[in-house]
Design a protein around this nucleic acid. Structure first.
Lengths: 148, 148
DNA sequence: TATTGTTATACTCTATAACTATA
DNA sequence: TATAGTTATAGAGTATAACAATA
Protein backbone atom coordinates (compact mmCIF):
# COMPACT_ATOMS: atom_id res chain seq x y z
CA UNK A 1 0.00 0.00 0.00
CA UNK A 2 2.03 2.98 -1.23
CA UNK A 3 1.30 6.01 0.85
CA UNK A 4 3.03 8.55 -1.32
CA UNK A 5 3.99 8.14 -4.91
CA UNK A 6 7.47 7.01 -5.85
CA UNK A 7 9.64 9.60 -7.54
CA UNK A 8 9.77 8.94 -11.22
CA UNK A 9 10.48 12.33 -12.69
CA UNK A 10 13.71 13.12 -14.50
CA UNK A 11 13.94 16.61 -12.98
CA UNK A 12 13.81 15.26 -9.47
CA UNK A 13 17.01 15.88 -7.51
CA UNK A 14 16.38 12.82 -5.35
CA UNK A 15 17.82 10.34 -7.81
CA UNK A 16 18.53 7.71 -5.21
CA UNK A 17 15.05 7.83 -3.76
CA UNK A 18 16.22 8.69 -0.26
CA UNK A 19 13.33 11.09 0.18
CA UNK A 20 10.72 8.57 -0.86
CA UNK A 21 12.24 5.85 1.27
CA UNK A 22 12.28 8.08 4.31
CA UNK A 23 8.79 9.46 3.75
CA UNK A 24 7.21 6.10 3.07
CA UNK A 25 8.95 4.44 5.99
CA UNK A 26 7.86 7.31 8.20
CA UNK A 27 4.23 7.02 7.16
CA UNK A 28 4.36 3.28 7.72
CA UNK A 29 5.81 3.88 11.17
CA UNK A 30 3.27 6.55 12.03
CA UNK A 31 0.45 4.23 10.97
CA UNK A 32 1.71 1.67 13.48
CA UNK A 33 2.04 4.26 16.24
CA UNK A 34 -1.40 5.55 15.44
CA UNK A 35 -2.81 2.06 15.73
CA UNK A 36 -1.08 1.44 19.04
CA UNK A 37 -2.42 4.72 20.35
CA UNK A 38 -5.95 3.89 19.19
CA UNK A 39 -5.72 0.54 20.95
CA UNK A 40 -5.20 2.48 24.16
CA UNK A 41 -7.69 5.21 23.28
CA UNK A 42 -4.91 7.70 22.76
CA UNK A 43 -4.26 10.05 19.89
CA UNK A 44 -0.76 10.24 18.47
CA UNK A 45 -0.26 13.49 20.37
CA UNK A 46 -1.37 12.00 23.66
CA UNK A 47 0.95 9.10 22.98
CA UNK A 48 3.81 11.52 22.62
CA UNK A 49 2.87 13.38 25.77
CA UNK A 50 3.09 10.14 27.70
CA UNK A 51 6.40 9.22 26.10
CA UNK A 52 7.90 12.63 26.74
CA UNK A 53 6.78 12.77 30.37
CA UNK A 54 7.72 9.17 31.02
CA UNK A 55 10.88 10.13 32.89
CA UNK A 56 10.66 13.89 32.83
CA UNK A 57 8.67 16.62 34.50
CA UNK A 58 7.96 19.62 32.32
CA UNK A 59 6.05 22.85 32.55
CA UNK A 60 3.25 23.52 30.07
CA UNK A 61 5.47 25.63 27.85
CA UNK A 62 8.23 23.05 27.87
CA UNK A 63 5.81 20.40 26.77
CA UNK A 64 4.49 22.65 24.01
CA UNK A 65 8.07 23.21 22.80
CA UNK A 66 8.76 19.48 22.68
CA UNK A 67 5.63 18.88 20.67
CA UNK A 68 5.94 21.94 18.47
CA UNK A 69 2.47 23.09 19.48
CA UNK A 70 1.05 26.32 20.79
CA UNK A 71 0.77 26.62 24.56
CA UNK A 72 -2.97 27.14 24.25
CA UNK A 73 -3.23 23.73 22.62
CA UNK A 74 -1.57 22.18 25.64
CA UNK A 75 -4.30 23.23 28.02
CA UNK A 76 -6.92 20.96 26.51
CA UNK A 77 -4.44 18.20 25.81
CA UNK A 78 -3.24 18.11 29.42
CA UNK A 79 -6.74 18.61 30.75
CA UNK A 80 -8.07 15.53 28.98
CA UNK A 81 -5.12 13.42 30.06
CA UNK A 82 -5.53 14.69 33.62
CA UNK A 83 -9.21 13.78 33.62
CA UNK A 84 -8.18 10.25 32.68
CA UNK A 85 -5.82 10.16 35.61
CA UNK A 86 -2.70 9.86 33.49
CA UNK A 87 -0.96 12.99 34.69
CA UNK A 88 -1.08 15.74 37.30
CA UNK A 89 -0.66 19.48 37.14
CA UNK A 90 1.40 20.87 39.99
CA UNK A 91 1.89 24.51 40.86
CA UNK A 92 5.56 25.44 40.75
CA UNK A 93 6.79 26.73 44.10
CA UNK A 94 9.49 29.07 42.89
CA UNK A 95 7.47 30.68 40.10
CA UNK A 96 3.78 31.20 40.71
CA UNK A 97 3.01 31.45 37.02
CA UNK A 98 4.38 28.04 36.15
CA UNK A 99 2.43 24.79 36.04
CA UNK A 100 4.51 21.63 36.09
CA UNK A 101 3.15 18.48 34.52
CA UNK A 102 4.08 14.97 35.60
CA UNK A 103 2.73 11.49 35.02
CA UNK A 104 0.79 9.68 37.69
CA UNK A 105 1.61 6.08 38.54
CA UNK A 106 -1.15 5.04 36.15
CA UNK A 107 0.41 7.28 33.50
CA UNK A 108 3.83 5.73 33.93
CA UNK A 109 2.32 2.26 33.77
CA UNK A 110 0.48 3.07 30.58
CA UNK A 111 3.59 4.67 29.08
CA UNK A 112 5.52 1.51 29.79
CA UNK A 113 2.85 -0.72 28.34
CA UNK A 114 2.72 1.45 25.25
CA UNK A 115 6.48 1.35 24.85
CA UNK A 116 6.37 -2.42 24.74
CA UNK A 117 3.34 -2.43 22.50
CA UNK A 118 5.12 -0.11 20.07
CA UNK A 119 8.21 -2.29 20.02
CA UNK A 120 6.09 -5.37 19.38
CA UNK A 121 4.04 -3.70 16.69
CA UNK A 122 7.08 -2.44 14.84
CA UNK A 123 8.95 -5.71 15.11
CA UNK A 124 7.32 -7.32 12.05
CA UNK A 125 8.56 -4.41 9.96
CA UNK A 126 11.98 -4.12 11.56
CA UNK A 127 12.28 -7.88 11.73
CA UNK A 128 12.29 -8.19 7.97
CA UNK A 129 15.87 -6.97 8.20
CA UNK A 130 18.70 -9.17 9.39
CA UNK A 131 20.24 -8.30 12.74
CA UNK A 132 23.31 -6.72 11.12
CA UNK A 133 21.06 -4.72 8.80
CA UNK A 134 19.01 -3.58 11.77
CA UNK A 135 22.19 -2.33 13.41
CA UNK A 136 23.23 -0.54 10.23
CA UNK A 137 19.82 1.07 9.89
CA UNK A 138 19.83 2.20 13.49
CA UNK A 139 23.26 3.73 13.14
CA UNK A 140 22.34 5.54 9.95
CA UNK A 141 19.07 6.90 11.33
CA UNK A 142 20.63 8.12 14.57
CA UNK A 143 23.47 9.66 12.61
CA UNK A 144 20.96 11.36 10.32
CA UNK A 145 18.92 12.91 13.09
CA UNK A 146 22.02 13.85 15.01
CA UNK A 147 21.93 11.50 17.96
CA UNK A 148 24.89 9.34 18.94
CA UNK B 1 14.90 18.09 20.55
CA UNK B 2 14.10 14.49 21.49
CA UNK B 3 10.55 13.64 20.57
CA UNK B 4 10.29 10.36 22.36
CA UNK B 5 12.45 9.05 25.11
CA UNK B 6 15.41 6.81 24.38
CA UNK B 7 15.10 3.23 25.55
CA UNK B 8 17.13 2.69 28.65
CA UNK B 9 15.39 -0.17 30.34
CA UNK B 10 17.03 -3.55 30.84
CA UNK B 11 13.82 -5.44 30.09
CA UNK B 12 13.42 -3.77 26.73
CA UNK B 13 13.69 -6.20 23.83
CA UNK B 14 14.92 -3.44 21.52
CA UNK B 15 18.51 -3.61 22.68
CA UNK B 16 19.91 -2.09 19.55
CA UNK B 17 17.57 0.88 19.63
CA UNK B 18 16.07 0.18 16.20
CA UNK B 19 12.63 1.12 17.45
CA UNK B 20 13.76 4.42 18.90
CA UNK B 21 15.79 5.27 15.84
CA UNK B 22 12.87 4.58 13.55
CA UNK B 23 10.33 6.37 15.71
CA UNK B 24 12.48 9.42 16.25
CA UNK B 25 13.47 9.65 12.60
CA UNK B 26 9.82 9.30 11.64
CA UNK B 27 8.72 12.09 13.95
CA UNK B 28 11.49 14.29 12.61
CA UNK B 29 10.37 13.52 9.07
CA UNK B 30 6.71 14.15 9.86
CA UNK B 31 7.60 17.48 11.43
CA UNK B 32 9.23 18.51 8.16
CA UNK B 33 6.27 17.31 6.10
CA UNK B 34 3.91 19.09 8.43
CA UNK B 35 5.86 22.30 7.98
CA UNK B 36 5.85 21.98 4.22
CA UNK B 37 2.12 21.39 4.26
CA UNK B 38 1.54 24.39 6.50
CA UNK B 39 3.57 26.54 4.12
CA UNK B 40 1.01 25.65 1.47
CA UNK B 41 -1.98 25.80 3.83
CA UNK B 42 -2.37 22.06 3.73
CA UNK B 43 -2.73 19.58 6.53
CA UNK B 44 -0.64 16.44 6.47
CA UNK B 45 -3.68 14.52 5.27
CA UNK B 46 -4.38 16.95 2.44
CA UNK B 47 -0.72 16.70 1.50
CA UNK B 48 -1.10 12.95 1.23
CA UNK B 49 -4.27 13.24 -0.81
CA UNK B 50 -2.40 15.35 -3.33
CA UNK B 51 0.56 12.99 -3.40
CA UNK B 52 -1.65 9.93 -3.83
CA UNK B 53 -3.74 11.47 -6.60
CA UNK B 54 -0.73 12.96 -8.34
CA UNK B 55 -0.74 10.31 -11.01
CA UNK B 56 -3.76 8.26 -10.09
CA UNK B 57 -7.50 8.58 -10.19
CA UNK B 58 -9.31 6.94 -7.34
CA UNK B 59 -12.84 6.57 -6.08
CA UNK B 60 -13.72 7.84 -2.61
CA UNK B 61 -13.38 4.41 -1.05
CA UNK B 62 -10.06 3.79 -2.73
CA UNK B 63 -8.72 7.02 -1.36
CA UNK B 64 -10.01 6.15 2.11
CA UNK B 65 -8.23 2.79 1.89
CA UNK B 66 -4.95 4.40 0.91
CA UNK B 67 -5.17 6.80 3.82
CA UNK B 68 -6.53 4.31 6.30
CA UNK B 69 -9.50 6.56 7.05
CA UNK B 70 -13.21 6.02 7.14
CA UNK B 71 -15.09 6.83 3.96
CA UNK B 72 -17.21 9.37 5.82
CA UNK B 73 -14.03 11.26 6.64
CA UNK B 74 -13.21 11.50 2.95
CA UNK B 75 -16.30 13.50 2.15
CA UNK B 76 -15.20 16.59 4.06
CA UNK B 77 -11.56 16.12 3.10
CA UNK B 78 -12.35 15.98 -0.60
CA UNK B 79 -14.96 18.70 -0.32
CA UNK B 80 -12.49 21.18 1.13
CA UNK B 81 -9.86 20.34 -1.46
CA UNK B 82 -12.46 20.66 -4.19
CA UNK B 83 -13.52 24.06 -2.94
CA UNK B 84 -9.89 25.14 -3.27
CA UNK B 85 -9.86 23.94 -6.85
CA UNK B 86 -7.26 21.24 -6.25
CA UNK B 87 -9.37 18.29 -7.34
CA UNK B 88 -12.62 17.30 -9.02
CA UNK B 89 -15.27 14.73 -8.23
CA UNK B 90 -16.52 12.90 -11.28
CA UNK B 91 -19.47 10.55 -11.49
CA UNK B 92 -18.39 7.11 -12.63
CA UNK B 93 -20.17 6.08 -15.83
CA UNK B 94 -20.18 2.33 -15.32
CA UNK B 95 -21.27 2.38 -11.68
CA UNK B 96 -23.69 5.06 -10.62
CA UNK B 97 -22.78 4.76 -6.97
CA UNK B 98 -19.11 5.54 -7.48
CA UNK B 99 -17.50 8.96 -7.33
CA UNK B 100 -14.05 9.22 -8.88
CA UNK B 101 -11.61 11.80 -7.64
CA UNK B 102 -8.86 13.36 -9.72
CA UNK B 103 -6.56 16.34 -9.41
CA UNK B 104 -7.16 19.48 -11.42
CA UNK B 105 -4.28 21.12 -13.27
CA UNK B 106 -3.84 23.40 -10.28
CA UNK B 107 -3.77 20.33 -8.06
CA UNK B 108 -1.08 18.65 -10.12
CA UNK B 109 0.97 21.84 -10.12
CA UNK B 110 0.73 22.14 -6.37
CA UNK B 111 1.56 18.47 -5.92
CA UNK B 112 4.69 18.95 -7.99
CA UNK B 113 5.75 22.05 -6.11
CA UNK B 114 5.21 20.26 -2.83
CA UNK B 115 7.25 17.30 -3.99
CA UNK B 116 10.20 19.55 -4.64
CA UNK B 117 9.63 21.48 -1.44
CA UNK B 118 9.64 18.23 0.52
CA UNK B 119 12.87 17.08 -1.11
CA UNK B 120 14.50 20.42 -0.35
CA UNK B 121 13.25 20.49 3.23
CA UNK B 122 14.47 16.98 3.96
CA UNK B 123 17.84 17.50 2.31
CA UNK B 124 19.52 19.07 5.36
CA UNK B 125 18.64 15.97 7.34
CA UNK B 126 19.44 13.45 4.63
CA UNK B 127 22.46 15.45 3.58
CA UNK B 128 24.19 14.85 6.88
CA UNK B 129 24.87 11.37 5.53
CA UNK B 130 27.49 10.69 2.90
CA UNK B 131 26.25 9.67 -0.52
CA UNK B 132 27.11 6.01 0.05
CA UNK B 133 25.37 6.11 3.42
CA UNK B 134 22.32 7.65 1.81
CA UNK B 135 22.22 4.77 -0.64
CA UNK B 136 22.60 2.25 2.17
CA UNK B 137 19.81 3.91 4.15
CA UNK B 138 17.51 3.98 1.13
CA UNK B 139 18.11 0.33 0.43
CA UNK B 140 17.49 -0.67 4.03
CA UNK B 141 14.32 1.40 4.35
CA UNK B 142 12.83 0.13 1.12
CA UNK B 143 13.76 -3.41 2.05
CA UNK B 144 12.12 -2.92 5.43
CA UNK B 145 8.82 -1.65 4.07
CA UNK B 146 8.84 -4.22 1.34
CA UNK B 147 9.44 -2.15 -1.76
CA UNK B 148 12.14 -2.95 -4.30
C1' DT C 1 -29.29 -7.56 -0.09
C1' DA C 2 -24.85 -5.45 -0.51
C1' DT C 3 -22.12 -1.50 -1.77
C1' DT C 4 -21.05 3.55 -2.41
C1' DG C 5 -21.22 7.73 -0.78
C1' DT C 6 -23.27 11.50 2.14
C1' DT C 7 -25.22 13.46 6.29
C1' DA C 8 -25.79 14.19 11.22
C1' DT C 9 -23.41 14.17 15.29
C1' DA C 10 -19.84 14.41 18.62
C1' DC C 11 -15.08 14.72 19.92
C1' DT C 12 -10.24 15.74 19.54
C1' DC C 13 -6.68 18.62 17.81
C1' DT C 14 -5.02 22.98 16.52
C1' DA C 15 -4.06 28.09 16.18
C1' DT C 16 -5.16 33.10 17.08
C1' DA C 17 -6.51 36.62 20.03
C1' DA C 18 -7.71 38.32 24.38
C1' DC C 19 -7.38 37.75 29.09
C1' DT C 20 -5.51 36.92 34.20
C1' DA C 21 -1.96 36.33 37.32
C1' DT C 22 2.71 36.56 38.45
C1' DA C 23 7.40 38.18 37.84
C1' DT D 1 6.67 45.33 30.85
C1' DA D 2 7.28 40.52 29.97
C1' DT D 3 6.14 35.75 30.76
C1' DA D 4 3.03 31.58 31.92
C1' DG D 5 -1.05 29.78 31.41
C1' DT D 6 -6.11 29.77 30.43
C1' DT D 7 -10.28 30.91 27.91
C1' DA D 8 -13.06 31.96 23.92
C1' DT D 9 -13.54 31.01 19.40
C1' DA D 10 -13.25 28.96 14.96
C1' DG D 11 -12.03 25.47 11.88
C1' DA D 12 -10.01 20.98 10.42
C1' DG D 13 -9.76 16.06 11.10
C1' DT D 14 -11.79 11.89 12.69
C1' DA D 15 -15.23 8.00 13.64
C1' DT D 16 -19.98 6.04 14.37
C1' DA D 17 -24.54 5.53 13.05
C1' DA D 18 -28.21 6.35 10.00
C1' DC D 19 -29.52 7.24 5.49
C1' DA D 20 -30.33 7.45 0.06
C1' DA D 21 -29.13 5.76 -4.29
C1' DT D 22 -27.47 2.20 -7.04
C1' DA D 23 -26.11 -2.50 -8.02
Amino acid sequence: MPITQPAAHPDDPDEGGSVDALVQASFATMAVLNKVGADHDLSLTQLRVLAILRDRRLRMTGLADYLGLDKSTMTGLVQRAEKRGLLRRVANRTDGRVVDVMLTTAGVDLADRIRHHVAQSLSPMIGTLSQPDQRRLTTLLFRMIGRR
